[in-house]
């Protein structure tokens, strides 16, 4: 009995489930059409625009970062290069200064040596000249002295020892006097 009820309900007097209600079809069609229009005209373009902008922003950001990185690397290279250059330059200058200093020192030494040699030479020449003059004046003085002494000695009696001794003493005294006189005169 119940089975019959079930069958009756399923197969029943109601219209076939495959028969559509045209009004419902119309409502679905219009609703879907409106929704589709809104999605097609507004929703999809807006989402796509956002996606495109986001992609661009991310890619632009990456490109910018890469550029900055490259610039930083280049700057670093440049600084390193400059540092190396500066070091080389400093070494060169130091080396130059050292060699220049050595050069100056050598020059000065040479000059000093030359000057010393010159002075020594001059001194030698002067000494020689003075010696020559001394020799000349001595020679003449000794000659005249000898002559004077001889004439004194000859002028007195040559055989009197006492006398000759007196002569010599007198001569020496004269000589001393002369020397004092000449010294006073020279003074």
């Amino acid at each position: 009995m119940n089975q019959v009820t079930i069958l009756a309900a399923a197969a029943g007097s109601s219209p076939s489930p495959l028969a559509p209600n045209p009004w419902e079809m119309g409502v679905v069609l219009i609703s879907f059409a409106v929704l589709f229009y809104i999605v097609w005209k507004f929703v999809v373009p807006m989402f796509e625009k956002t996606f495109a902008e986001r992609t661009e922003a991310i890619e632009g950001g990456i490109a910018k970062a890469e550029k900055a990185q490259a610039e930083a690397t280049a700057a670093l290279e440049e600084y390193k290069q400059q540092l190396v250059d500066a070091r080389t330059e400093a070494n060169r200058i130091r080396e130059e200064a050292r060699s220049e200093g050595a050069q100056i020192l050598a020059d000065l030494k040479e000059k000093a040596a030359a000057e010393a040699a010159r002075i020594t030479e001059q001194a030698h020449v002067q000494i020689e000249a003075e010696r020559q003059a001394a020799v000349v004046s001595l020679r003449s003085e000794v000659g005249s002295l000898a002559t004077t002494l001889a004439s004194r000695i000859v002028g007195e009696s040559l055989n009197d020892d006492a006398r000759s001794a007196r002569v010599v003493d007198r001569f020496l005294a004269d000589l001393e006097g002369n020397a004092a006189q000449s010294a006073g005169a020279s003074n």
């Binding site: 419902e24 409502v27 609703s31 409106v34 929704l35 809104i38 999605v39 507004f42 929703v43 956002t50």
Partner: peptide
């Protein structure tokens, strides 16, 4: 059905 279209349109317009 009408409500679904209105809800969907409103939601996605607001989201986008």
């Amino acid at each position: 059905v009408i409500l679904s279209a209105v809800l969907l349109a409103a939601f996605f317009l607001a989201a986008a």
